[in-house]
Amino acid sequence: MKVELNGVSKWYGNLVAVNDVSMVLEPGVTGLLGPNGAGKTTVLHMMAGFLAPSRGRVLLDGEPTWRNPPVYAKLGLVSEREAVHGFLTAWQFVLASAKLHKLPQPEAAARRALELVEMTDAQDRRIETYSKGMRQRTRVAAALVHDPAVLLLDEPFNGMDPRQRMHMMRLLHDMGANGRTVLFSSHILEEVEQVSGTVQVIVAGRLAASGDYRGIRRLMTNRPHVFTIRSTDDRRLAVALVNEASVAGVDIDPALGLTVRASDYGTFTRALPKIALTTGVRVEQLLPTDESLESVFSYLVAA
């Protein structure tokens, strides 16, 4: 089952949250990647029918999701906000979901969903006594109870310990392999890398990149890196660095020290100690300046 966004924009007054995004989600797992505040949640909520697009169309299997409750028979949503009815047990909560879906055998469906997320041991405890990861899995069970063809998850790995994370990743991967359309959002590249083959990257409300994650990963790692260096003799080090092939440029600032633009992260960081050693300059400080995720993404946008 396909989810389609055709020229979708969302604005709040003068603020444009999502700007002319078009994408098609096919069966399999897709990662929606982007820094915090990029508009991932807005895109997800529009797909899930919880926000009206200001322009464009959001279609699930050819039908609009906005003001169309019947789509929830085919769609499951795990929102980021971990709101659950804390006074219910996981069993009651998932069973209620199954009943609200009017499934023919709600008990069997609830049992299957709870087994899938490995929550059967704790299913008779009230949800308010659960850890964050257990709540998350309970919510996933409730979203899966009707075996939806499309599953949307907003930051599903938040608050999970490594074991739970692995389990959730395997679950999503299996669902994708079984022909479900799974989309999950994340601001962490490694999470997306481990689960999904395809990635949609959103930066500042725009679709910045789309497609196979390996290509995007390469783009991200091969970008120029900027370092600031303080040493005992900046000028002499600068002269030596200019001869290094992985260095694209050097600035000298008496106050800040050296600013070095390296074309290749690995080669440069391996070469620097040797250069310092041969020139007899002691490096006092080496700081990568653009390692924040935002800069990685903004580089992607420019690329």
Partner: peptide, 9 residues
Amino acid sequence: VHVLTKPLP
């Protein structure tokens, strides 16, 4: 949201 993500009128 849990109630609204169901195919209920």
